[in-house]
Design a protein around this nucleic acid. Structure first.
Length: 274
DNA sequence: AACGATCCCTGTTGGC
DNA sequence: TGCCAACAGGGATCGT
C-alpha cells in the first residue's frame, strides 16, 4: 500500500521528469478520480498548458506546484501507483489519468479507485488538505506535543499513528513497524504511554520511514505498488512484523501475532512489545 | 469531542 | 475444477 515511503519514492522519480516542464494535456478516463474536485471547476482545463514549478509532498499527498497559483493534488489511496512511459506504449489496465508532459506520459493506475486527483486554488486546497498534520518524515511531531494531544485518549496507540491529523504519512504497514521498533503494544490506550515510550515512538517514525525509503518502499506480492519505471520496492524482506503472522520475530524468535486493531490487521511481537 | 462502525472498490485468496 | 464469500485498506461519514 502506498504510504509515505512509497509516495516519496514516486515523487523523487517523477520530479525530474516534470519540474520546469509544461503540461500539454491531461486526460481523465475514470470520473470517480475527480470526486474531490469542486463541482463547478474543470480539472483538465486547469492543468492544461501550465508549467510545473515543483513536485512536492505532504504526508501521502503528492502536490504539483503549478504556475498561476494552482496546486495539483494526487492521492494514491490503497492501490494507486504512478507510471512514466514513452508515448505509444499500450496502457495497462486501470489507467485512469494521463498527464502528457514534454513528450512523455505520466500515468495514474488505480484498480480499486480509492485514490483521487484534483487541481485546486489555494482556498480549495486548504479544504482538501484541512487537518493534515506534520509530515512523518520531515517534520515529526515533538514529544511535548504528543503528550498533550494523547493525554486521556483511550483509543489504541496504533489508531493514533494512523490518524493523519496527528502525524501525516503512516499507514497500516509502517504503523506496525514503528510500534515494533518502539517496543510498544499496538493495543495500548494512547493516553497510557509514558513520556519515555512516546519518545521511542517519535524516534522510530522517521527511522523506519527513512529505512523504507532507502529501499524504494514496500511492494507486496498481491496488488503491488511499483516504482514509476515498473520496478518493485525492496523493503518487503526487511519488514519486522507486518504480514509475518506466526513467523519468528527477528529480535527474539517469538512467533509474530495478528489481531484486528482500529479495524485494521495488526502484527506485533508479544515479547518485544509491551 | 471522542470513538467505533460502515462504506466505497476490485483483484486475490481460501473454503467447500 | 468451479464458484462465491471473505479479505485487503485510506479516508470520509455517521451514529452514539
Amino acid at each position: 500500500m502506498p504510504e509515505l515511503p512509497e509516495v516519496e519514492t514516486t515523487r523523487r522519480f517523477i520530479a525530474p521528469v516534470v519540474e520546469g516542464k509544461d503540461v500539454d494535456e491531461v486526460v481523465v478516463t475514470h470520473p470517480r478520480m475527480l470526486r474531490r474536485q469542486p463541482l463547478d471547476t474543470d480539472f483538465a482545463d486547469r492543468f492544461a498548458h501550465r508549467r510545473i514549478l515543483r513536485l512536492g509532498r505532504r504526508g501521502k499527498f503528492l502536490l504539483w506546484e503549478l504556475e498561476g497559483d494552482l496546486t495539483g493534488v494526487v492521492h494514491l489511496g490503497m492501490s494507486g501507483r504512478m507510471r512514466v512511459v514513452e508515448p505509444g506504449e499500450p496502457p495497462v489496465a486501470h489507467t485512469h489519468v494521463v498527464w502528457h508532459v514534454d513528450g512523455r506520459e505520466v500515468q495514474l493506475i488505480d484498480p480499486r479507485t480509492f485514490g483521487f486527483v484534483a487541481c485546486l486554488t489555494p482556498d480549495e486546497a486548504e479544504v482538501v488538505l484541512a487537518g493534515i498534520g506534520p509530515d512523518a518524515l520531515t517534520d515529526p511531531p515533538g514529544v511535548d506535543d504528543l503528550v498533550t494531544r494523547l493525554a486521556g485518549r483511550r483509543s489504541p496507540i496504533k489508531a493514533m499513528l494512523l490518524d493523519q491529523r496527528i502525524v501525516a504519512g503512516l499507514g497500516n504497514i509502517y504503523a506496525d513497524e514503528v510500534l515494533h521498533r518502539a517496543g510498544v503494544d499496538p493495543r495500548r490506550p494512547a493516553g497510557s504511554l509514558d513520556r519515555g515510550e512516546l519518545d521511542a515512538v517519535v524516534a522510530a517514525i522517521p527511522h523506519v520511514l527513512g529505512e523504507a525509503l532507502i529501499h524504494g518502499g514496500t511492494s507486496l506480492d498481491d496488488l503491488a505498488y511499483l516504482l514509476p519505471d515498473g520496478r518493485a520496492g525492496e523493503f518487503l524482506d526487511r519488514l519486522a512484523v507486518y504480514g509475518r503472522t506466526d513467523r519468528a520475530c527477528a529480535a527474539c524468535g517469538t512467533p509474530i501475532r495478528r489481531v484486528v486493531v482500529a479495524q485494521r490487521s495488526t502484527h506485533w511481537c508479544p515479547i518485544c512489545q509491551k
